[in-house]
Amino acid sequence: MDGMTIEARPQRVTDRPAFIDGPDGSLAAMWSLPEAPDAKTGVVLLSAGGHVVHSQTNRWGYRVSRALASEGFPVLRFEYAGTGDSAGQADTFALDDPNAGDARAVVAVMSGRVERILLIGHCYGARAAFEVAADMPQVSGIYAVAPPVRDGARGEGTGNRMAYDASIAGYIGHALKAVRVGELRSREGRRRYRRLARTFLTARWRRVQRHLPGAYEDPTPWVSGRLISQLQALGKRRVPVLFAYGSADADYEDFAKAKGGRLGALMTRGKTVELSLRDGEVHNMSRVALQNEMIDEMVRWVLTRSDGRSEGGGGT
């Protein structure tokens, strides 16, 4: 169950540890290198935020890295500043500020070896991938595992959803119920409440805007504007993006609703954004069989993209 999910590969793989200089200190990283690397395409893995090491749950990061390397692709995975073996101190893992500096530093190192780079990002790591891809032309594709389409920091999902969906009284009731004196005493607790309040006020302001004469009525105002801009930029460059979700993922529920707005328009227009949907929950990678399926799909997706084809494959 824990071994390779892909059949025997032609290339022997060597893993090599690396330290990469990031904006907030040295980042711990790991190369998975084939004997005769593909000089054109490399892959960078971007982890989810929080308690994550780059080998990932049940080593799915390790396994996919070696599976891809055995197909001839150099692969690099790393730990954000303040996590794992990296230097620095972690902050809130905010989706609208997803450690893009760290990701850029790592992608830049890969750029020294190959012509084009495919990114595989998980949750917060997928949002980092979009940030990086928007201004690094060497990125030629993104496989995004359960990316949140809303902004916010870890653990703020419920509050952010309520800011748009609940009544003012309901929202305030929730906030007061959730308030703990201890939390408000800490700097991080106060920062969190400030962020939630900002989201709430933004949501209310967007409601007001909808009633202004000539205003565009966006049915999904809660979708990250930053994410939409990034996807637009990637669409113009014909960079393929695959969104991989499980039907039980809370983020898929958001994604499905978001298709009714600007995100849906982007998917229809450019045909560069695809969806891969499977039963159950993908976000937490909480089934070994699911991890194996995902690894297989990632390898197929990279193989397709490395052939220079810009569409098709992977999505359902």
Partner: peptide
């Protein structure tokens, strides 16, 4: 901030300039 010091391929190390401690990663 720690600086990277690349040693042999299978073994890398860095030095924390504030403490002088070395971190050496290897297989």
């Amino acid at each position: 901030m720690m600086h990277t010091d690349r040693g042999a391929d299978t073994r890398v190390q860095r030095v924390d300039p504030s403490t002088g401690c070395v971190e050496l990663a290897e297989f």
